[in-house]
Design a protein around this nucleic acid. Sequence first.
DNA 1: TATATCATGTAATCGGTTACATGATTAA
DNA 2: TTAATCATGTAACCGATTACATGATATA
Lengths: 202, 202
Amino acid sequence: MDRSNAYPITYGVLGLLAFWGPQSGYDLKRLFDHSLSPMWGAAHSQIYHELRRMKDLGWVEMEREEQESRPDRKVYSITPRGSEALASWQAQPASVLQLRDELLLKILFGSFASHDDLAANLKKGIAEHEMRLLNYRQNLQYIPTRGERIQEGRRHNPYTEADEGDPFFTLIARFAIEFENAYLRWLYETLAFLEENEIPKQ
Amino acid sequence: MDRSNAYPITYGVLGLLAFWGPQSGYDLKRLFDHSLSPMWGAAHSQIYHELRRMKDLGWVEMEREEQESRPDRKVYSITPRGSEALASWQAQPASVLQLRDELLLKILFGSFASHDDLAANLKKGIAEHEMRLLNYRQNLQYIPTRGERIQEGRRHNPYTEADEGDPFFTLIARFAIEFENAYLRWLYETLAFLEENEIPKQ
DNA sequence: TATATCATGTAATCGGTTACATGATTAA
DNA sequence: TTAATCATGTAACCGATTACATGATATA
């Protein structure tokens, strides 16, 4: 629980602090939802938890911003030791990916499902991934610029044109789009295959 | 722990029992490693756990096979109630995918890494995914056939030519290959981009 | 009037991984 | 002689999700 270990999610929060400058837990949750969600989601409870752990580790500092009629904002910023931790994480090999996609499991065992159940799940998958694709395409036009964001502080529009933006965000956005395209292509082909091979009910 | 709920991993084990016929925990672990591992991995401890839980639910039955000089094999088979559970799982919508790929996280925060660290991680990713692709391509030639496997029992070669095999296994194998191809294409492009834009050390 | 946003946290649970534990057989 | 295979389990831990808890402001 309060161990001194760090995990991908820890560095996710730390990286966002390094990139965007000082943020509250609430801000970080929105950044997660906006830029990381389908790549690495996080509940707000977990973000608050990681912040406390990193404070204990000396990787972040906290400053309290008082507000009338609302809970104080606790604004966290990365410390030099946090920056070191982030860099040494980058020097370590990444753990290997596991998909864990329930839809794929269902298709794999499709011989135990009715045609209609399979088709329904495929269509739900198509809707879901089409929506993601739209989202990513829009995001690609608004890639953040690091320097600006940190200098001007929070609460202004953090986006600039894609061609001035952080090249790594652009690379990841491209990945997301290509992944969704490949997934969708397969979903449509699979659905078509099922419809062709359906044995019609008498 | 011993709750009466079921999760994707539960149905993964149940589906394997339905497809391949009676198996021991040890057999199931190998089937997982062979056919499901990068899609939905499972430690042997978890498989044994799911088997006990499903026995309590009446979804599987256990029969003890005595052996000299080795622990008894406990062979599990799916019950009619297990088949019902599998079918009703297929009727429910699948949960949505989250990638949770640490490599993507590292690339996203690539502005806090050295060129060499990034390149090393990309190259490790390339090696990993090339290996998977090879594996999937080999698997595609040997797709299991359900009926045979169950009738003839375990411990014979369970594979037949792809064109006679289960169509769903073929569909999933195609997905896996297309996914790895898309991922690899992106990895190579990203690595090339980094090499082009490297600021050489003085 | 009801929902959404702002803002932070605790508690409970659980899915999943890693380590621990045992021990015979067989092939390199 | 070392490692891999066969074979099954327990224990500890922890990352992550879900639910619980509070309460003001602004918008529909």
